[in-house]
Amino acid sequence: MIKKNTYKRSDAIVFCILFLITLLLSRINFPLIGTDGIMPDYFLALFVSLIATRLMKINIYILFLLGLLIDLLAGELIGQYGLVLIIIYFVNFILNKYFLLQTSLMQFSQNLVLITIGLIMLLILSSSYELTTNVNLLGIKWIVTCLVCLLYNQIIKASRHRI
């Protein structure tokens, strides 16, 4: 019987390294983007990249468990990131079902859509009840998160080429 190999070991190593780097980045106060409200959501950027590039081919259950781990390490409520990651996974599934995303511009648009949905969901699920958020700050956060997501995409592509 042939056993189905769901993911490569090298992909898992890349994922672990990226996760640890993200964990550190999420706790570092960089100048200009370190202010409360502007700081990019590194975890969202990482998981959008992972889901969009299909690194490790993570299924929805593992994704939910990873979301719970993020909630434990950096979140405010249990299940916040778990739910957001499931929604992103589902939206990505729908996008791939109805659109053929081949060029890099298309894939970038896919990332933008996923990040937008993720940020809106995080805002709605926030424990601070602040629905009247500053739109300008949120816009800057969205742009910075998209840039971080692009960076993660490039790192994942580079690691795949090298391996």
Binding site: L23, L24, R27, D71, L72, L73, G75, E76, L77, I78, G79, Q80, L83, L125, S127
Partner: peptide, 27 residues
Amino acid sequence: MGLDHRKGIHNKIKENSNFLVTPIIYI
């Protein structure tokens, strides 16, 4: 999430899983 917000389960789990965060703070 609602249950966590009311009962503070997140903080209780965090209190018992310090070993995950302590190395990051140290680094």
